[in-house]
Computed example of a mutant assay.
Amino acid sequence: MKNFFEGIAYLCEEVLFAPFNTLREMELENWTAANVLNWIFMIIAASAMVYWILQLKKFDKNNEERKDISSHSYL
């Protein structure tokens, strides 16, 4: 059983986290290149937020949202 858990530990530490170890080593040489993944995620999140706000604005302009007090049955 010990070998089984050591195999899982090896898989996680040496195989699955290898790209993150490379990024960690690269951070000492070039900060921008090491944080490209973070910038990509921030751009995706910002574009999703802009899309969501534009969709809310579109539905508000078309008066498709029910704004009366009894819009939900539990109210």
Rank of each mutant, 00 (worst) to 15 (best):
A46P: 03
K61W: 06
Y10L: 02
N3K: 14
F41S: 04
I69L: 14
E64N: 13
Y51L: 06
F5I: 05
L16S: 02
H72Y: 10
I44Y: 10
R66P: 08
E13S: 04
P19K: 01
V15M: 01
E64W: 15
I8G: 00
W52V: 07
Y74P: 10
V36Y: 06
E25I: 13
E25L: 09
A45R: 03
I43A: 15
R24L: 15
N63P: 03
M1I: 13
W52R: 13
W31Y: 14
Y10V: 02
L56G: 03
A33K: 09
I69N: 09
A18E: 01
E29G: 06
N38D: 11
L11Q: 00
N21E: 11
K58P: 07
W52M: 08
A48P: 05
I40E: 10
F59M: 14
K67H: 05
E29C: 04
E64L: 15
K57A: 03
W52Q: 09
T32N: 04
V50F: 15
I8Y: 00
A9C: 11
A18W: 00
L75N: 14
C12F: 15
D68Y: 01
W39C: 11
M49E: 12
M42Y: 02
C12W: 12
K58T: 12
F41W: 04
I44E: 05
I8N: 00
F4A: 03
F5M: 08
A9N: 07
L11N: 00
F20A: 00
K2I: 07
N38E: 09
M1S: 02
F41C: 04
D68S: 04
L16R: 01
K67G: 11
D60E: 11
L11E: 00
S73T: 08
F17N: 01
W52A: 04
M26N: 07
A46N: 04
I40N: 09
A34T: 01
K2N: 07
M49S: 12
K61I: 04
I69G: 12
N62L: 13
E29N: 04
K67I: 06
N30V: 02
I40S: 13
F5Q: 01
N30I: 02
M26S: 07
L37I: 02
L23H: 09
Y51E: 10
F17L: 15
N63Y: 10
N21F: 13
L54K: 09
